Amino acid sequence: MTSIMATKKQQGFSLIELVIVIVILGILAATAIPRFLNVTDDAEDASVDGVSGGIATAVSFVRSQWEVDGRNNNSVVLDGTNISLDRRFGFPTGLTSGSNVVSATAMTNASCQEVFANILQNAPRNVLVTQDARNQRYTARVVTGAGGNGVTIDGTTVNNLDLCVYHQVSSLTLDQASGIPTPAPDLATAGAKGVLYNPGTGQVLSFTN
């Protein structure tokens, strides 16, 4: 008895089909990969804009409370915290303890951090620009006299206002050993992202360099 072996015809992709598939994959990669690479940048920008909006809202709350209090106080109570302000302008300048009230022309790294950490509800993790920024979200520093001029409530122009700068840590270069931003970031640091706050005008702006 003769057994008949059924043979199956082996089929695969032709060279033309493989080329077409490779071309399609190349087109998809060229379109999609740049989008994936930009996801991180977009998320960082959105985070900066969110923090900027939060600070602007909180600053307006402080100013509104100061107005309600009659424009005479050098501090207001915000969510149970005494917030210092320059009574010439009415915008937050840090924390107040007794007579220790900060002027918009005498800000420090610490007072800028106090504004950031205390007027925001659930403020992002932050440190001074001179401290270890690993595992932090923002650094705080002051740029003395960089805020231009502002007009007080009695119409007097004050020059050389200070400027608080909050840099997003993920946009900075940190020293591998100390975790301190190196070099110390300023307004012109390439690639840096963050938020500017002027305690003499109340203006809040996000930036990307």
Rank of each mutant, 00 (worst) to 15 (best):
T2C: 05
M5W: 07
G12T: 15
I20S: 12
V21R: 06
I22K: 07
I27K: 02
I33V: 15
P34D: 07
F36Q: 09
D41A: 09
A43C: 02
D45I: 13
S47W: 09
G50T: 13
S52R: 12
G53P: 02
I55L: 14
I55H: 07
V59F: 13
V59Q: 08
V62A: 04
S64C: 02
R71V: 01
N72S: 12
N74I: 00
N82D: 14
I83S: 05
S84Q: 04
L85R: 05
D86K: 04
F89K: 03
F89A: 01
P92W: 14
T93M: 00
T93Y: 07
T96W: 06
T96E: 14
S97Q: 14
S97I: 07
G98L: 05
N100I: 04
V102D: 08
A110I: 08
S111V: 03
V115M: 08
F116G: 03
A117R: 13
T130R: 00
T130H: 05
A133I: 02
R141C: 01
V142A: 05
V143C: 01
T144A: 14
G147L: 10
G148H: 11
N149D: 11
V158I: 10
N160A: 15
L163M: 14
C164S: 11
H167N: 10
S171L: 00
I180F: 07
I180G: 02
P183M: 08
P183F: 13
A184P: 02
A188S: 15
A188W: 11
A190R: 09
A190C: 01
G191N: 00
A192L: 00
G194A: 04
L196R: 15
P199A: 06
P199C: 05
G200L: 03
Q203W: 06
L205Q: 15
